[in-house]
Structures are given as C-alpha cells and as structure tokens.
C-alpha cells in the first residue's frame, strides 16, 4: 500500500458515498445514469468473486464488501425506491455496445484463461468504459447538478491516482500489470473533458453546463 493507492481508494469511496447521499437526501436520482450504475455493479461483482478464494488483507476484503454492497444499494435506490425520479428518457446509451466488446477483448487479451482471471480481466475493461452512459446523459442534457459533478470528479480522480500508484509500484517493486495500466489510462482519458470543465467552472462556483 502506498499513499497514491490509499488516496485513490478514498476518492473511490467518497464518490460512492456522495452518490448515495445525493440520492437519499434529495429523494431523487434525477441526472444519474442507472445504466452506468448497472455496469459498475457488474464490475464489482465480476472483480470481487475472489473474495471467496483469496485473502489479501482485512482492508482489501472490507473495501470489496463496501463497494459491492453500495453498488447494489445504489441500484435499489434508482430502480426500486426512487424509480419515479429516474430519468430514463435521457439514459439511452446502449450498454450492449460496451458489454460485448469487453467480453470479446477479455477473451483475446488476458493473463490467464482461468474463470476468475477472465472475470477480473472483463471487470477491468468494463470499468474503463462504465462511465460512458453517465457522460452521455450529461452531454444529452448539457448539464449536471453540482453534487453529480463532485461525484464524477471523485470517481475520475480515483483511477488517475491509481496510475500514479502504478508508476510508483513499477519503480519500487518492479510491479506492473499491463492490462490494468492500459485500461486505467483509457478510463482516465474519458474523464479529461469533464475534469477540464469541472476545474474551470464548478470549482469557481459556477454550474456545470456544457458549452453550447
């Protein structure tokens, strides 16, 4: 564990909590893509099946359980409890266009053809693109609530911090995982536009609105 990975995990945790609190406090999931949340639940489910097979540390197991539980809690809030507020008209991204390529890619480029490894690889590829339905929704409506933009910033910052962690681990432990690194860089690049607008607008107290 190093400071970059710890900060990354904290950002990830903050993002999830911010999203849950936003929905709970406002009693509404307006502006949130349920499809992205389905993809994230799938990411955690396929990546953390190793909870049953390998033990890394108490920290590792507890975080995995939190990510799994919170992702299903988020889905419950969106699709059951506050379903009436779900903005399905704007959540029109076709997730099969992400799922199918991720399945194919994980069969083509993987470290090992064991079921757990294939699920892990799939989860890494899917995580890289899971935010696209949410970004598509923001681009469709042209705006995001300030709290939603905080959520997106924390979620994007998490993988950016992981990249720094991988650079650090490469030099200190000679550790490198090509699949995670390439997917993580792509994932972070997808947030680049958003980061720019977040820093130039939201942090200066303005609303998150896309340029016309």
């Amino acid at each position: 564990m190093n400071i970059f990975r710890l900060l990354g995990d904290i950002c990830h945790l903050v993002a999830i909590i911010v999203l849950l609190l936003k929905i709970w406090k406002t009693r509404s999931c307006a502006g949130i893509s349920g499809k992205s949340q389905i993809l994230f639940a799938l990411v955690y489910t396929t990546r953390y099946v190793d909870l049953f097979f390998t033990y890394v540390s108490l920290y590792n197991s507890v975080m995995k359980v939190i990510f799994l539980a919170s992702s299903y809690a988020t889905l419950y809030l969106i699709y059951v409890k506050f379903k009436a507020t779900y903005d399905f008209n704007h959540d029109t991204f076709r997730i099969e266009f992400l799922l199918i390529p991720c399945v194919i890619l994980s069969l083509l480029i993987t470290h090992d053809y064991s079921p757990v490894e294939l699920l892990w690889t799939f989860s890494i590829y899917l995580e890289a693109v899971a935010i696209l339905p949410q970004l598509f929704m923001v681009s469709k409506t042209g705006e995001a609530e300030t709290i939603t933009s905080h959520y997106l910033f924390a979620l994007g910052a998490y993988r950016a911090l992981y990249i720094v962690n991988w650079i650090y681990r490469y030099y200190t432990e000679s550790f490198i995982d090509g699949i995670a690194v390439v997917a993580g860089i792509i994932q972070t690049i997808l947030y680049a536009d958003f980061f720019y607008l977040y820093i130039t607008k939201v942090l200066k107290g303005k609303d998150f609105k896309l340029p016309a």
């Binding site: 990975r5 995990d9 990830h12 190793d50 390998t54 890394v56 540390s57 590792n60 975080m63 995995k64 990510f67 470290h111 090992d112 490894e117 892990w120 992981y162 962690n165 550790f175 490198i176 995982d177 090509g178 699949i179 995670a180």
Partner: peptide, 10 residues
Amino acid sequence: HENKAPKDEL
C-alpha cells in the same frame, strides 16, 4: 512468459 500479477489492488 508474463507472471500473473498479484491481485492486491481494488
């Protein structure tokens, strides 16, 4: 041959 990376990250 690449060693399978340890899965200690989240």
